[in-house]
């Protein structure tokens, strides 16, 4: 028999564990966007070595599974003398990985901006940093918004991987509750519901932002 009782009883605990999912996703997203913008700037730099570094970065963080990256951060960093709490290592790694994808989204969006936009800024003597922050990035974020929202939703789902470094977020919590209650169907349905709500909120926020940015 399907037991709503089990869902109701365990929902608060499950929801509580969602704070780790949210924390990792939100911080990972902020880190990913900032670092992604920097990587993207490097990828478009006229200095060859900067472009090389950006390309290497993207190939590495896109090419290696996040799971391996997390394990590497968790087990390798202490070996080389860097001791970070599991949560910090997880946030850092998820953000590093998101940056690789987001930098590519931004790069694609920037290519869609007419060259005259930056030229008009250069012509009045604006410094490259201001051209980047005030003129190009806002437009790239707008053009790339649907793709960025997509990446953020993937990020929320990918955050379930941080269980491998011992963080008890939604997925890990539902595993333990399912094991304890022998009610996997109900518990995983409840977990799925929480993920779904988070991602629907993100998608809706993205649509609202898109509408606001359309002038």
């Amino acid at each position: 028999m399907f037991s709503f009782q089990t869902i109701v009883e365990n929902f608060p605990v499950l929801l509580g564990s969602a704070r780790y999912t949210l924390l990792i996703s939100v911080l990972g997203c902020i880190e990913g966007l900032i670092l992604g913008a920097v990587i993207c700037a490097a990828a478009l730099s006229n200095k060859r070595w900067m472009r090389r570094i950006a390309a290497l970065y993207v190939s590495f963080f896109r090419g290696v599974p996040l799971l391996i990256q997390l394990l590497a951060a968790y087990y390798l960093l202490p070996v080389i003398g860097i001791n970070v709490p599991a949560l910090a290592a997880a946030v850092l790694t998820v953000g590093l990985c998101a940056a690789a994808y987001l930098s590519e989204v931004l790069r694609g969006s920037l290519n869609a901006i007419p060259q005259g936009q930056a030229e008009a800024a250069a012509a009045i003597g604006m410094a490259p940093r201001d051209v980047w922050i005030r003129i190009l990035l806002p437009q790239a974020l707008k053009i790339g918004l649907p793709a960025i929202v997509n990446e953020l939703i993937l990020l929320v789902k990918a955050s379930s991987l941080v269980t491998v470094v011992g963080i008890v977020e939604i997925t890990r919590m539902s595993q333990s509750i399912a094991a304890a209650t022998y009610r996997p169907l109900e518990i995983y349905l409840a977990a799925a519901f929480i993920y779904l709500v988070i991602n629907l909120v993100i998608a809706q926020a993205g649509r609202m932002l898109e509408r606001r940015l359309t002038v």
């Binding site: 007419p114 005259g116 936009q117 030229e119 008009a120 800024a121 012509a123 009045i124 003129i135 806002p138 437009q139 707008k142 940015l213 002038v215």
Partner: peptide, 11 residues
């Protein structure tokens, strides 16, 4: 400088 395509910043 004034450009043929105006190049105003749309945002």
């Amino acid at each position: 400088m004034v450009f043929q395509q105006f190049n105003l910043w749309p945002h």
